[in-house]
Design a binder for these strands. Structure first.
Lengths: 349, 349
DNA sequence: TTGTAGGCGTTATCAG
DNA sequence: CTGATAACGCCTACAA
C-alpha cells in the first residue's frame, strides 16, 4: 500500500492573467490567443500583433498544468533524484542530464534524498504527481521496492550508478570493477607486493563492484595471501584514518593502498601525513579528488566522469520517451580514467 | 514584448488511473476518494480502507496540475536558477535551499543557465509557467530586465550572490567586501608590503565587491602606491597563470597575492609551482578550494558558505510566501571564513 | 482566417 | 458521513 504524501504549505496563488483575460483585452476569441501563444498558423498578422501586445500588457503566462491536462501529453519536465546536490559527483550528473535534455526543451526537477529511502520515496511520488515525463535516479541506497512499483505503473526510469536486478530499466554506471582491476594491475606492475583495499559498505553495489575488481586483479597476479589485505566498511574519513594506522602498525604493512572512495582516500592521506609516511606508501583513490596532482603527496586516482554518466542517462531517457528504444533494458558503462601520477606509484625497493 | 518559449518534444502521456477510476473500482463516489487521498475527516474507516485498496491496485497518483488548477493554490514547487549544477558552490546553495524547504513539503525545480541570459530567461519563463510558488536566482550574469518584469508581475524572487539595484527583492550574499578586507589586513599584519590582487570581470558585482575590499584594506594601511598591484579580468586559470608570471618577472614582485576566485587561485598556484616559487609568495584565494590545507603549498582561503546562503534564501522565500514578510526588500550577508593556513602567510624578511 | 463546444482530473460548494 | 455539480485554464475537435 503506497504512502500518501504530506501536504506542503499551500499558499493561495497570486491571480495571473488567463487566455480569457487576454482575449477580452485584445477583443478576440480565446482560441485566437491560444493560436498565437502556441505559434499556430492561420492567424492574421494584425490580430496576432494585437494579441501579443495584450499578452505583454497583462503579463500573461500560459499555465503548464492546465495545458498538460487538456492536451493529454506530458509536460517538459524530467525528474532527477540524487543523494546530495552539494556533492560534485551528483552535480556533474545533473549537469550532463541538463546538457542533453535542455536543448530538447526539457527542464529537470531535482531533489536530494540524503540516502534516506523515505525521502526518496516521497520525492519519487511528488515527481510522479507532477507528471514528469521520466525520472533519472542516482540514489545509492535502498528503496528498490518503490522503484519497482513505479516501473510497473509505467513510469520511465533510468538508473545511474546503481542497479535494480531483474527490472526492465535502463542503467548507466561507471566501470567500477574493471577500473579498479586496471589500477591494481598497475600497482602490481610497479612492483608492489603488499596491497591493501579500503572499501565502504559492501552492501552498496558500487562498493561491492570495486572490491570485486580488486580481488580479480590480485587473484590473476597470484599475489601471496599475506600480500592482500581487505578492510571493508571504512567509508568515512575518521574510519579510514584509523584503519590506515592499524595497517601500517601491523606486521607486513602494505606498500600500496587502494581507497575505494574519495572520503576513504582523504582519511588515508591524513594518516600518512600524520605519520610523515607520505612517500612510503602508494595511494590510489577511486573517485575524483580535486587537484589530486597538486596534493602533497600527489595521489593517483580512478576518476569517474559524472557528466558523461548524466549525458548518457539523459539520452537513454529521451530515446525511451520517444519510443525509439528497442525492447529489453539497456546497460551502459562509462569508462573510468586511471591517472597514475608517476610519483604516487613508486614501490619501495 | 516577452519571448514565447520553444516547444519541447511533447510525448503522449501514458494513461494513469484517475479518481473516477478509483471511485468506480471501490464503488464509491469521486468525492469520497478525494477525501481519502487528502486525509480529510468524515470518512468511515470501512470506506476509507476500500478506497485505499483500490488506490494501491490501480496505482493511482493524484495529478498535481489538475489539483492546482482546481484549488487555486500554488503547488509544492520552488524554482532554483543557477549557473552550473556541477559547480560545488551552486550545488551547495541548492542543498541549503532543499534543507530548509523540503521539510515544508517543497520540491525544487532546478536549471542551469551557463551564465547565458537567453537560457536564464527561458528558464524563468518555464518556471513561471509551471506555477512555482517562488524562485531563487543564483545566476551571476545579466538578464536583469527579465527579472524585473517577473517581479512586477508578482513572482516571488530571492536573489543569491547577485544584486538587482532598485528592485523590491530579497537578497542573500557573502561578505565579499569585508571578507576580502579582513584577509588583506592579515597579510599586511604578517609583514607583507607588496600585495597583488588578481580579479575577475569587474562588471560582475561580486568581483567588484572583492576588489573594493582589497582597495579598502590597502588604503587604510597606507600602503605605498608601488606596493599595491591590481590586475582585473583574469578569471580563468590560464590568464591568472600568465598574469602571475608577469608580476613575478617585473620589478618589485609582490610577496603576497590575493586571488579573487578559485580558478584564479589555481592559475597562480600553477605558475608558482612552475617557477618552484611556492614558498616565496603567500597566496590567499577567495572561494573554497577543496583540501586547501593538503595542497603543496598550502593555500589560505576566504571560504564562502554556499549551504548557508541557500538556507537563508530558502527561509526568506518561504517567509515571503507565507506573507510573514515586513515590507521593503531584505538583504542578508552570510559571513565568509578566513582560513589563514599559517605557512601560507609568511612574509619574506 | 476565426470562433464555439466539450472535456481533461481535481477541488469547493452545497445538498442529501 | 456521503455525494452531485460547477468551476479552474487550456487544448482538441469541429463548425462558420
Amino acid at each position: 500500500v503506497p504512502e500518501v504524501a504530506e501536504d506542503p504549505e499551500r499558499v493561495p496563488v497570486t491571480r495571473r492573467a488567463t487566455m480569457a483575460d487576454v482575449a477580452a483585452h485584445a477583443g478576440v476569441s480565446l482560441k485566437t490567443v491560444s493560436r498565437v501563444v502556441n505559434r499556430e498558423p492561420h492567424v492574421s498578422p494584425q490580430l496576432a500583433e494585437r494579441v501579443r501586445i495584450s499578452i505583454a500588457a497583462l503579463g500573461f503566462r500560459r499555465d503548464a498544468g492546465a495545458r498538460q491536462l487538456a492536451s493529454r501529453t506530458t509536460g517538459p519536465l524530467l525528474g532527477y533524484v540524487q543523494v546530495d546536490a552539494a556533492n560534485p559527483f551528483f552535480g556533474g550528473v545533473a549537469r550532463g542530464l541538463e546538457d542533453v535534455t535542455s536543448p530538447q526543451g526539457y527542464l529537470v526537477l531535482t531533489g536530494s534524498t540524503d540516502a534516506d529511502p523515505v525521502r526518496e520515496a516521497r520525492l519519487l511520488e511528488t515527481l510522479v504527481e507532477a507528471r514528469v515525463a521520466g525520472i533519472v535516479v542516482a540514489a545509492a541506497e535502498g528503496g528498490d521496492e518503490v522503484l519497482r512499483q513505479e516501473l510497473t505503473h509505467g513510469t520511465a526510469i533510468v538508473l545511474v550508478d546503481r542497479q535494480l536486478p531483474g527490472a526492465d530499466c535502463d542503467t548507466v554506471t561507471s566501470t567500477n570493477r574493471s577500473g579498479t582491476t586496471e589500477a591494481v594491475r598497475a600497482l602490481l606492475t610497479a612492483g608492489h607486493r603488499r596491497v591493501a583495499f579500503l572499501g565502504g559498505d559492501p552492501a552498496v553495489w558500487t562498493a561491492a563492484e570495486r572490491r570485486a575488481g580488486f580481488e580479480a586483479a590480485v587473484a590473476e597476479a597470484g599475489l601471496a595471501e599475506g600480500g592482500r589485505r581487505v578492510v571493508d566498511g571504512v567509508g568515512a574519513v575518521a574510519l579510514a584514518d584509523a584503519a590506515t594506522h592499524e595497517l601500517l602498525d601491523g606486521a607486513d604493512p602494505p606498500t600500496a593502498i587502494l581507497a575505494a572512495q574519495d572520503r576513504i582516500g582523504l582519511g588515508v592521506l591524513e594518516a600518512l601525513r600524520a605519520r610523515d609516511a607520505q612517500h612510503e606508501v602508494a595511494l590510489v583513490v577511486f573517485d575524483e579528488i580535486p587537484h589530486a596532482a597538486l596534493l602533497d603527496p600527489p595521489v593517483a586516482t580512478i576518476a569517474q566522469d559524472p557528466v558523461a554518466l548524466g549525458r548518457s542517462a539523459g539520452e537513454l531517457l529521451v530515446a525511451r520517451l520517444r519510443g525509439e528504444r528497442r525492447p529489453g533494458p539497456r546497460t551502459v558503462e562509462i569508462p573510468t580514467r586511471f591517472h597514475a601520477r608517476a610519483s604516487a606509484m613508486i614501490a619501495p625497493s
